[in-house]
Design a protein around this nucleic acid. Structure first.
Lengths: 196, 196
DNA sequence: TCTCCGTTGTACCGATAGGTACAAATTAGA
DNA sequence: TCTAATTTGTACCTATCGGTACAACGGAGA
């Protein structure tokens, strides 16, 4: 059995500090406090220092969503993948109590430093959701717009829920967005069908 | 004629620094650089230091929106006020190139410090937009939901536009949201009418 | 058991953080 | 013009910032 604290074990803890305080607010002292690791270990795992940590955290978040959400949306049965996406979103963001690290980084000066990772995260999310909708038979243009609306709505809901301290707003919004991707009931959205 | 730099003149400059770098990232040196004022003047205008500056900035933003957007939504002709809101939003946020200070503060640890001002900003926006919609004859429940959707959509659009560096996304989203408040064309939304 | 290498704690670095003290400069009012 | 209050620049304070150096520790393989 190796040491308890390997790099992959530490990253989620570091992520939590960045999420809570932002890039500038995440001081090394707060990170050592949260992780229980001294600077020695920290700089051993992340030779590039704070920027290295943030990069690792962004990569980890990106990889996590890729595995749990994006890939299923592209590769699995569309309906099941979309259901899975909503469950994942609700639990990952803890009903709105937890914010989106990538979205938070996008808003302040931190963005310029990690522009690539931040941009790719959202672009991939929209693209893979669009893909699932198209595979469901949606008109591609409609699929694109709705995917954009959904991802954008999630981010907006996170901002508003946290701003007003009202997590019911988050859940309510997710329910509304979810219905928007299930147009069977109202039959408003899809214009073109492919199969059967 | 008094000094060129009175407190009201300085606040917008300070606001720009907070907007650009976030609360933690807005160092006093960056603020002195932007405003051209030394620490002496800065602490003369804002005896409470950095926190005092941020409070003043939040108050100023809140008062500005109250005057330019919220009050018209409550008091003026609803249609004109809503049109005015959209114009203001587009120009204030510079087609998505500029972010929402209040939304950015809401996302990181800064929120706890200014929870009241942050919450009130969004609550008032939603409430006054709802008011305008009700005065337009909307069903109150629908008005509430749509107002929430709109404010939330603006915030989400700001996050996504900045994350993907795509200001067309912002404008596109605003156009879509704008249509949502003009249901004459499709006649989807309002269920109850009051007047004539 | 000894050795070796991944891991860790400690001490330290210069730079900058936010904030204070206060005298000099500037201004407005009489 | 003289005076009193406002406004400003400068020097300085301590705490903490991100980062480095390095010796001590630890367990696994020989």
């Amino acid at each position: 059995m190796r040491t308890l604290n390997e790099r992959p074990d530490v990253i989620p803890l570091v992520a939590e500090v960045f999420r809570e305080f932002g890039y500038e607010g995440a001081s090394l002292s707060r990170i050592t406090e949260k992780t229980g690791l001294g600077k020695g270990s920290l700089y051993h795992f992340f030779p590039g220092g704070k920027e290295d940590m943030a990069k690792a955290v962004l990569d980890e978040v990106g990889a996590w969503f890729e595995r749990e959400v994006f890939a299923p949306l592209r590769d699995d049965a569309p309906e099941a993948a979309i259901t899975r996406m909503w469950d994942t979103v609700i639990s990952y963001f803890r009903s709105g109590r937890r914010i989106c690290l990538v979205g938070a980084f996008a808003l302040d000066g931190t963005r310029d430093r990690f522009a690539d990772a931040i941009s790719r995260y959202f672009v991939r999310w929209i693209a893979s959701l669009r893909d699932a909708l198209v595979r469901l038979g949606w008109d591609p243009a409609d699929a694109n717009q709705s995917a954009e609306e959904v991802v954008l709505g999630i981010q907006g809901a996170l901002v508003l829920a946290r701003a007003t301290n009202d997590e019911s707003l988050f859940v309510r919004t997710i329910d509304r967005l979810r219905l928007r991707l299930e147009p069977r009931k109202g039959a408003q959205r899809p214009r073109a069908r492919r199969g059967a």
